[in-house]
């Protein structure tokens, strides 16, 4: 069940939304947090009143969707959204108001903007799009859930083009709480970002990059993960060395956790790019990796900050990610020859 990636857009801590090429240089964030580089929203959401009423994460989601859809020039037949953390900022704002104001005289706006489907719903309202619309909120599977749904809609003939959007934002409190939980040990950086993709069964003018398959594996044991990865490669008649690059979900500079070590070991002859030290980590970060894979394949060039020894050609990329040791996922991306 493969689909073409017709268009993509990303708001992340490294690149600008309007950038078409990956930068030649990128700095690691100072400290343990990195913030997404927000665009000039006027460029994407013309109505000042609409902009003023939106939260930061809503604006990021809508701006990325508008920029992504400008590449296809067509209404999507489905809007499928993914988030792990949700609209944290408004959730906290409302909760703080409840506690500090003794449940009295509350402004309902942060409540209505705290719901997880806010970004997908706002995107639909701005686009005036009444098609299929849903939101997935399953930790490190949220984006993968959304991708599979889009692939099924396309296969069902219900969607010619599906918009998949992911968003996650962090706040001071969420950073602190996860710090207390030990999330940011071993070099991990707290990140955030919004990614959008237009997927279709038919290739478009934007190129012939295909998302061939998505695999989700639940559970903390290494051996079943190793076996499922082997079966996944077998299903696609691939040997590890047929892959040009592994985008590894390792949080730090080196392979870190046992899962990344195992996966990087399977692909030991393949260049490994560890992107999280630059872009940070969050539940839907595999969407950032997919966006990055599309860019790398289109450019046929990997910047030095990402990879010391870039491969000669970049036609096939495996993305591996895991969230909190339980949600493991693999995405297989390739350029059609």
């Amino acid at each position: 069940m493969s689909v073409y990636i017709l268009a993509s857009a990303s708001i992340n801590p490294v690149t600008e939304l309007r950038d078409t090429l990956l930068p030649a240089a990128a700095a690691r964030p100072e400290g343990r947090r990195c913030a997404a580089r927000e665009p000039d929203y006027k460029m994407y959401i013309a109505d000042a009143n609409v902009r003023r009423r939106m939260s930061r994460v809503m604006k990021m989601g809508v701006a990325a969707a508008v920029q992504c859809l400008s590449q296809t020039g067509r209404q999507p037949d489905a809007i499928i959204t993914a988030t792990g953390w949700g609209c944290l900022s408004d959730t906290e704002k409302f909760l703080r108001n409840v506690l500090e104001n003794g449940e009295c005289l509350l402004n309902p706006t942060p409540f209505t903007q705290s719901t997880f489907n806010t970004v997908g719903a706002q995107t639909a309202i701005v686009l005036k799009n009444t098609n299929y619309n849903t939101t997935y909120v399953h930790r490190g599977f949220s984006f993968e859930n959304a991708l599979l749904d889009a692939m099924m809609r396309i296969r069902e003939g219900e969607a010619v083009q599906a918009l998949v959007e992911s968003y996650d934002e962090h706040t001071g409190a969420s950073f602190k709480i996860m710090e207390r939980m030990g999330f940011w040990r071993q070099g991990a950086v707290c990140g955030e970002g919004v990614q959008c993709f237009v997927l279709s069964a038919q290739p478009g003018a934007g190129g012939r990059v295909r998302l061939r398959d998505v695999l989700c594996v639940f559970g903390g044991e290494l051996q079943p993960l190793r076996e499922k990865l082997a079966l996944f490669l077998q299903k696609h008649r691939l040997r590890p060395e047929d892959v040009d690059m592994l985008l590894s979900g390792s949080a730090g500079k080196d392979s870190g956790c046992p899962y990344c070590r195992m996966v990087e070991g399977v692909f030991k002859t393949v260049p490994v790019a560890r992107y999280k030290p630059f872009f940070g980590d969050y539940p839907t970060v595999s969407s950032l990796a997919l966006w990055l894979a599309g860019r790398l394949i289109a450019q046929q060039q990997a910047p030095r900050w990402l990879l010391d020894a870039p491969p000669e050609q970049i036609n096939r990329i495996v993305i591996y990610n895991h969230y909190k040791t339980k949600n493991h996922s693999f995405l297989l991306v390739e350029r059609e020859q």
Binding site: T115, N117, T134, T135, N145, G219
Partner: peptide
């Protein structure tokens, strides 16, 4: 039921 899992949130 861990064969495939998903969580949906559309209010």
């Amino acid at each position: 039921a861990t064969g495939y899992m998903a969580t949906v949130s559309t209010a």
